[in-house]
Every structure is written in structure tokens, then in C-alpha cells.
């Protein structure tokens, strides 16, 4: 396999002090999806901006399709598509005009640009809205137009910066389907996300970033295995009760329990029997939780287990 994206030791400082990137590096094999996972301000967008040539790193290097993103920036630009929160469509232009404009800026003839625009609109189910200014679009439609704009020249490498942030569940599923279609057609995708669920569903590999550095890397399965498949949240009447309950599990539980105020979080990796075991332990000690929830691990859990602290809302660029 050859690498479609390689990055090594990328650093970037903003305003002389805020270290946005602190040695980020990873490799994305051709035809695979990499999920760049992290909270706001972790450096996801900054990484994408370096890889899409709109930001020059202070040090380190990166190659896309074997081309250096600084030295061969213009060649890189010809072979990538970028969609996401910081690369927008023009609100005053119609969907068709937006796509035609991007096509023409890729040096397509007017005729070809129009044809590609119409085909993309149809593919993304936007034909009916094609002649309306894009500011009248719903969030999901705008996101689809945005992704369509990134696909005008069928780039071999596609960057999607938080493609589903702020979308309703239906639109989110629609965007996921688009990405899956593209990957099935051989496109390499790098997508950034704050949702573990999204990375789990779409990505072949996940890179977790925090404070501008990679803190974990692996397939969704390996990452989740280190976390436990599921988390059991047990609510108690107060912090004291929760802390007393946590002592029952500290040494005897396969993965360490986490105390969050009056809520005790227990990683569950062996199915329902383990939930029953937890409840039996509490019952034997004469303790009763006031609430109980079983949920999939969140980004927060990934963070907690990797860094020992909660994902914080950092500066959002």
C-alpha cells in the first residue's frame, strides 16, 4: 500500500504563543479513511489547513499524494477536495453557480463546469434547489453542497472538516452515506470529528489529538477495546455515596472506575453479566444507586482514559 497522506512533526504557533500544533504526525494509506478525533481546539482544523496548503507549518513536513504541501502547494491543490466548517460556499450564489464557479476555477470549460455542476446537484439530491441562493438552504443541504463543491474534479484525496457538526441525525446519516460511497469508489478521506460514533462508523483508523499532539492511534476496534465497549453510569444521592461505591470497584473491576461528581462510571466489556455483577456488588454492600444508564463510550471517555482528564472546550481557532 502507498501513503496518500503523510505528516511528520508538524508544529504551528499562533500569535507567538498559542501552540496549535505540537508535533503532529500520521500516515493515511490510499483508499482508507482516517478519523482525526479530538475536542475543540485540539488542532484538528489546523492540521487540515496545513495538509490543504492554506497554512504553512512552522516546522515538520507533510506530503499529499507524494507532493510536499509547502513546496508543491499548487500541485497538491489540484488533487484534493476540501469541505467543512472553515471552507464555505457563497451564500449569495445559487447551488448551481457555486459548483460551476469551483469547476471553472479548476480550469474546466464553461460547458464542462455546468455539466459537472448539474450532475453533482442530482447526485446530492439538490436539483430542486439548484437555482436558489444557497443562503436559503437548510444546514444539511448546505453541507451537501459544500461536499459536492469538494468533489468537482473527483479528487483522489478528500478532506472533510467536521462534516456533521451541527446537523440533525437524518442529515448526519446522509453525509455518512456520501462518505461511504466515495470510499467505495477509491477516494482517500481524512475527516475530523468530535464524535466517536462518527469515527467508529466511517474510519479505518483513528488518530486522537489533544493540545496539538497525537495521544493515541489505532483502529476503532483497538481503541474501543482499551476503553470497554460500553459505560455504565450509576447515579448516587451525593458525592460521598458515589465515592464509597467506587471503592468497591477500584481493585476488583477489569477497567478502573471513574468518579464524576455523584456519578460513578463503570466500563463494561463483558456484556449484561458484568452489569449484573456490578449491581450484585452494590447490593451486597447495602448501597443503592438512584439512577442507572448504559451508554456507548463518548469522546469524553476516550479522553478520560487516555489523558486522565475530561475533554476541555479549548479555543476554537
Amino acid at each position: 500500500m502507498t501513503a496518500a497522506i503523510e505528516a511528520e512533526g508538524l508544529t504551528k504557533t499562533f500569535g507567538g504563543e498559542f501552540l496549535a500544533l505540537n508535533g503532529v504526525g500520521f500516515t493515511v494509506e490510499e483508499g482508507t479513511v482516517l478519523g482525526l478525533l479530538g475536542p475543540n481546539g485540539a488542532g484538528k482544523t489546523t492540521t487540515v489547513r496545513v495538509l490543504t496548503t492554506t497554512l504553512v507549518p512552522d516546522s515538520g513536513w507533510a506530503r499529499v499524494n507524494g507532493l510536499d504541501v509547502v513546496k508543491d502547494a499548487n500541485k497538491v491543490r489540484s488533487s484534493i477536495g476540501l469541505a467543512g466548517q472553515y471552507a464555505a460556499v457563497d451564500a449569495n450564489l445559487t447551488g448551481r453557480e457555486n459548483l460551476r464557479m469551483v469547476g471553472q476555477l479548476f480550469q474546466l470549460s464553461r460547458k464542462d463546469a455546468s455539466r459537472v455542476a448539474d450532475e453533482l446537484l442530482e447526485h446530492f439530491n439538490l436539483t430542486e434547489a439548484a437555482n436558489r441562493p444557497s443562503k436559503t438552504y437548510s444546514g444539511g443541504m448546505r453541507r451537501r453542497l459544500d461536499i459536492a463543491a469538494a468533489l468537482v474534479v473527483r479528487p483522489p484525496v478528500l478532506f472533510l472538516d467536521e462534516p456533521t457538526t451541527g446537523l440533525d441525525p437524518n442529515s448526519r446519516t446522509a453525509v455518512w452515506q456520501v462518505v461511504e460511497d466515495l470510499v467505495a469508489n477509491g477516494t482517500t478521506v481524512l475527516l475530523t470529528t468530535q464524535y466517536l460514533e462518527e469515527a467508529d462508523r466511517l474510519a479505518d483508523n483513528i488518530v486522537v489529538v489533544d493540545r496539538g499532539a497525537v495521544i493515541a492511534e489505532g483502529t476503532p476496534a483497538t481503541l474501543k477495546a482499551t476503553l470497554g465497549e460500553t459505560v455504565l453510569d450509576l447515579g448516587f444521592s451525593d458525592v460521598g455515596a458515589a465515592s464509597a461505591a467506587s471503592k468497591l470497584f477500584v481493585s476488583s473491576w477489569p477497567a478502573p472506575p471513574v468518579l464524576d461528581g455523584s456519578i460513578l462510571e463503570l466500563p463494561i466489556d463483558a456484556g449484561p453479566s458484568q452489569v449484573m455483577m456490578a449491581l450484585r456488588k452494590l447490593d451486597e454492600a447495602g448501597m443503592a444507586p438512584t439512577s442507572m444508564t448504559l451508554r456507548e463510550p463518548s469522546l469524553d471517555d476516550v479522553f478520560l482514559s487516555l489523558t486522565g482528564r475530561r475533554a476541555e472546550l479549548g479555543e476554537d481557532n
Partner: peptide
């Protein structure tokens, strides 16, 4: 997906 067009 549409056929890619060739740049002029």
C-alpha cells in the same frame, strides 16, 4: 458520481 471533466 459524475464523470470527471478534463481541465482545459
Amino acid at each position: 458520481l459524475p464523470q470527471a471533466a478534463t481541465p482545459v
